[in-house]
């Protein structure tokens, strides 16, 4: 075979493979973009000022909004973070910095198991533990969501701290810093962006959860009325409104979906920026 025809064959193969790769990419992106496109197309009609400032309309009421669901979602996420972030971060610190303890292998194992449990199961667990005592409430929902959050934050924190070079730790210890100060002032501080990234990803994950919300908080179409009462929730809104017979509620469901997608997208963009800034 002559040299030039050999190279031509190679070029042709190269073009074919490249074409296939792009095709596969296109096929993978079609569902994503069609979801975003469809949600945007249908959701955009719902969006106006009322949509953001008015609560869920009563049956037969025209217009209305999802303001109470946005409020409820933020409150729920906030309370979840209050429970989940400290526990997750501290567990992550333990696993990364005190990994010589045999205990940590066990914790790591259960953390993985916890991460794999379906969220509805966690919802049921929270129902049995809290709803039966307190009733459907923000507390019960946040408790369930924080159980989903903790393993994610734990793992990302552990990984973030392990990325901090050992030389930095040694530098701090050699300065005569006690271990806990080294961990808090040096290691955690060096990894704060990566840890924040992990927390944000966990928030993105729980923002979209609806199954545990359904069994712990249920439906609530009014404003926030206390932590021992339910609040409205975006993800749940989509589930309930979309199934409703009222046309304006269906429109609100699409609007909620759009807002939810924007929130998750927004979080992911922030994460991207944080990741790029690291080191």
């Amino acid at each position: 075979m002559s040299g030039s025809s050999y190279y031509r064959l190679r070029r042709i193969k190269d073009v074919i493979v490249r074409f296939m790769v792009y095709l596969a990419l296109l096929i993978a992106l079609i569902p994503l973009f069609s979801v975003i496109f469809e949600v945007a197309r249908r959701g955009i009609i719902a969006i106006n000022l009322d949509f953001f400032v008015k609560p869920t309309p009563t049956v037969g009421e025209v217009g209305g909004g999802i303001a109470n669901a946005i409020q409820g979602t933020f409150i729920t996420i906030g309370l979840t973070c209050l429970i989940g972030v400290p526990i997750g971060v501290i567990s992550g610190i333990f696993l990364s910095e005190y990994s010589e303890s045999r205990f940590s292998t066990i914790i790591r194992f259960f953390n993985e198991v916890l991460n794999g449990i379906p969220s509805i199961v966690i919802g049921i667990f929270s129902y049995a533990l809290i709803v039966l005592a307190v009733g459907f409430s923000v507390i019960a929902a946040s408790f369930a969501l924080s159980i989903i959050m903790i393993p994610i934050v734990t793992r990302t924190t552990e990984e973030a701290l392990k990325l901090v070079p050992a030389t930095i730790r040694e530098a701090a210890i050699a300065l005569g810093m006690p271990r806990w100060k080294t961990v808090v002032y040096i290691v955690l501080r060096s990894a704060k962006k990566t840890v924040a990234t992990g927390i944000l990803l966990a928030i993105a994950r729980i923002t979209g959860e609806s199954a545990p919300i359904l069994v712990t908080m249920g439906y609530w179409r009014w404003w926030f009325a206390g932590l021992n009462r339910p609040v409205a929730n975006l993800a749940l809104n989509i589930f309930l409104f979309a199934n409703s017979p009222f046309e304006n509620w269906v429109v609100l469901a699409w609007g909620s979906a759009l807002i939810l997608i924007m929130m998750v997208l927004g979080i992911n963009i922030v994460v991207r920026i944080l990741m790029r800034e690291r080191y």
């Binding site: 530098a171 501080r189 060096s190």
Partner: peptide, 11 residues
Amino acid sequence: MIFQKPNPFPM
């Protein structure tokens, strides 16, 4: 102690 690779605290 001073180490092989310079290790100022990056943050």
